[in-house]
Write a protein that binds this DNA or RNA. Structure first.
Lengths: 183, 183
DNA sequence: GATGACATGTAATTCGTTACATGATTCC
DNA sequence: GGAATCATGTAACGAATTACATGTCATC
């Protein structure tokens, strides 16, 4: 039920509609949700039921009404409580490593080209993260410390993918060095 | 549908029962499934329907029958095809970073102790991964290359968590240095 | 005339987790 | 007597994805 809190976080920063949130989540390289309406709109209904957000309907002409949500005081309190919950370790799904576990059934060159393709994917991620880090419309920086935290979080993601890229290069090198000995 | 292929991989290495697989998955720090029976036994049924594994029932006295599965030739072929599918980027869920995004609503010391708790979690993960790397009952090494691949994959995971630990230390240091300026 | 942005939502389906259910044996 | 291991499976629920559904306006 973390998406509720993530949404609550953004609503504690500024009033937003479901559609705004959808765009934010879709544009983000680091929010692990697919920006599907179902989850977002249901989360907003639940947050409203919990009294953590308030809702205001803005009538528009020739367009659907905008349902604008913002965090209430109770919501801000709930957010602070959640922020302080004991952190769990990060959890990664590296499907490629599961493929590579059985890579010994392939030829050496095939393994190498898989690693090359993986490197491209990872480099592309780094690129997208850097782009996202540069333009910041969806980034709060109400205090220097908040700005630092967000920059720092962004660096975390970039660093992770760079570490992955480094591992790929090292692994390819080692495989190539040993290729003569083990096909 | 990746769990099917992961299971198929293990069955291409050696014959196993659902219960064996459950233990392997539960013991693994890197397989992102919770070793629930439901998924495992359904996957085995499906793999059998696909003709990718064969099933042999071993009668036992005073204990339930063992349903031993092993990969068929068709299964090995399907595995090879899957191993060669284009790799996707790794995907991580770092719930803590989502908490930290709104960490500016806390005091400096609270943020620091959150980071300290996160560091402990991450260090613990590194420890568990190292332990798992040392004793290898569930690790195939039919060829030097396979042994290398598995070791390499293990290093990947350790490296990732070590990078995370490094980031935490850097972030704490930076926050402490700036604490006088920004509360 | 088609595509895409704006803006709301629902339905169908799959994926994943927890808990339930059974039953013998062994170890503490 | 109670817990753990062996060994199979099912049920109930929750989380997540994809696709469906509607309607206006602006742009190409």
């Amino acid at each position: 039920m973390s998406i509720k809190h993530v949404i609550l976080g953004y609503l504690s920063w500024q009033p937003l509609t479901g559609y705004d949130l959808k765009k934010i989540i879709a544009a983000s390289e680091t929010l692990p949700w697919s920006a599907n309406n179902n989850q977002i709109y249901r989360a907003l209904v639940q947050l409203h039921e919990d009294g953590w957000v308030s809702k205001m309907v803005e009538n528009q002409e020739g367009a659907p009404d905008r349902h604008v949500y913002r965090a209430t005081d109770a919501g801000r309190k709930a957010l602070r409580d959640w922020v302080q919950t004991p952190p769990g370790p990060p959890q990664s799904k590296k499907a490629f490593l599961h493929q590579l576990m059985w890579g010994d059934c392939l030829e050496g060159e095939q393994v190498d080209s898989l690693l090359a393709a993986y490197l491209e994917e990872v480099n592309n991620k780094v690129f997208l993260l850097r782009v996202q880090a540069d333009r910041k419309p969806d980034t709060p920086d109400r205090t220097p410390r908040e700005a630092f935290l967000w920059k720092s979080i962004c660096q975390n993601w970039i660093g992770q993918y760079e570490a992955e890229a480094h591992w790929i290069r090292e692994t390819r090198r080692a495989l190539q060095e040993n290729a003569p000995r083990w096909g």
